[in-house]
Design a protein around this nucleic acid. Structure first.
Length: 289
DNA sequence: CCTTGTGTTCTCCG
DNA sequence: CCGGAGAACACAAG
C-alpha cells in the first residue's frame, strides 16, 4: 500500500533516473489505466521530457516539457498495488533482467511503458488496476491540488493548523487520519502506527480528544512519517521503489499486521483487530485509550 | 470470505 | 428542500 513515505521514495528515485531524459516512445497496453484518451496521452508525452517530479499526498506529479505558456502535467496514482519501476535497459521487458521480486513482476500487468533516449524504460504496472495516470493542464492541476489537506511533513503543517482542521469534526480519529482532504498522504498502515504511537483508541471521536491528545497525534504524525521516509517506506506485499527495491520500515511496525500478537509496549494484551470506516484496524486496548 | 485507495452514491441532520 | 458531513458502497484480483 503506497502511502506518503512510499510515494516520496519512488519520487526521489525517479528524479535521479528520468529527469530531463527525452521520451522516445509511450506504449499503452491497457488504456483502462488512463484517464482521458490514449492518443492525447501519447501525443502530449512523445518527444518531451519530465522537467520536474513532485508529490502531493499519495499523488505523483510529473511536469512535462519546457513550454511555460501551456504547461502540462502527468498525474500518477498507484492505488493499492500500482508500481512505477525504472530499468536502465528494456531487457527487463523480455525477461533478461534479474528483478528482485520476480514472482510479482508480471508483464501482463504492465499497462504503460515509457522508453527514454539512451534505452531506459519506465513501467507503470498495477495488478488490481486501482491506480491510474492522467494528463492535466495548469488549471486541472490546481483543481486536483485543492482536494488535498496540508502536507504533514511541510513546515506549514503546524500544531495550530492541525487543531483548526480537527475542530468541529464529528468523525472518529481513524477515519479522520485516512481522509485526504484533512491531511494528505496517510493510509491504513501509518494511521494505525500513528494512533499506537500517540496512545489513542482509533474509535475515539475527534471532538472527544483533549488538547493534549490532539498534540500527541500531531507529534506522532511527524515522528512516524519521517522515520518511514528515512527507511524508504514499508513493503507489506506489493510495494517496491523506482529501482525495484523493498522498503525497510516493516521491521519498525508496532501494530499494523500484528493482530493476535502480544503488544510490544505493554506486553499484557494481544493486538486486537476491528473494522473502522470499512478498514482493518489494529490497536492495543490496553495502551490506546 | 479477506485485503485498501479512491471515487461515487446514499443517508442523515439542521 | 438544500447543503454539507459523514458513512456506505463499488471496484479489482490474488
Amino acid at each position: 500500500m503506497p502511502e506518503l513515505p512510499e510515494i516520496e521514495t519512488i519520487k526521489n528515485g525517479l528524479l535521479e533516473k528520468v529527469l530531463g531524459k527525452p521520451i522516445l516512445e509511450v506504449e499503452v497496453n491497457n488504456a483502462s489505466v488512463l484517464r482521458g484518451g490514449k492518443n492525447i496521452f501519447k501525443k502530449t508525452l512523445g518527444g518531451e521530457s519530465f522537467t520536474d517530479i513532485t508529490r502531493r499526498g499519495k499523488m505523483l506529479i510529473f511536469e512535462i516539457g519546457e513550454n511555460v505558456a501551456d504547461k502540462k502535467f502527468l498525474l500518477a496514482r498507484l492505488g493499492m498495488t500500482g508500481r512505477l519501476v525504472y530499468f536502465d535497459s528494456d531487457d527487463a521487458l523480455w525477461g533478461g533482467y534479474s528483478f528482485k521480486d520476480k514472482k510479482s513482476f508480471s508483464h501482463k500487468h504492465c499497462h504503460v511503458i515509457f522508453t527514454f533516449e539512451g534505452g531506459g524504460v519506465l513501467l507503470f504496472c498495477d495488478v488490481r488496476r486501482f491506480g491510474y495516470m492522467e494528463i492535466v493542464d495548469e488549471m486541472g492541476l490546481k483543481n486536483k491540488l485543492e482536494e488535498f489537506g496540508p502536507e504533514p511533513l511541510s513546515p506549514d503543517f503546524t500544531l495550530g493548523i492541525f487543531r483548526d482542521i480537527a475542530r468541529n469534526k464529528k468523525t472518529n480519529i481513524k477515519a479522520f487520519l485516512l481522509n485526504q482532504k484533512y491531511i494528505a498522504g496517510i493510509g491504513n498502515i501509518y494511521a494505525d502506527e500513528i494512533l499506537f504511537e500517540s496512545k489513542i483508541d482509533p474509535q475515539r471521536s475527534i471532538d472527544s480528544l483533549s488538547v493534549k491528545e490532539i498534540r500527541a497525534v500531531y507529534d506522532a504524525i511527524g515522528k512516524i512519517l519521517k522515520k518511514a521516509v528515512a527507511n524508504r517506506g514499508t513493503t507489506f506485499s506489493d510495494y517496491v521503489d523506482a529501482a525495484g527495491d523493498k522498503g525497510n520500515f516493516k521491521k519498525f511496525l508496532k501494530v499494523y499486521g500484528r493482530a493476535g500478537e502480544q503488544c510490544l509496549r505493554c506486553d499484557t494484551k494481544k493486538i486486537r483487530k476491528i473494522k473502522i470506516a470499512g478498514r482493518g484496524t489494529s490497536y492495543c486496548e490496553c495502551c490506546q485509550k
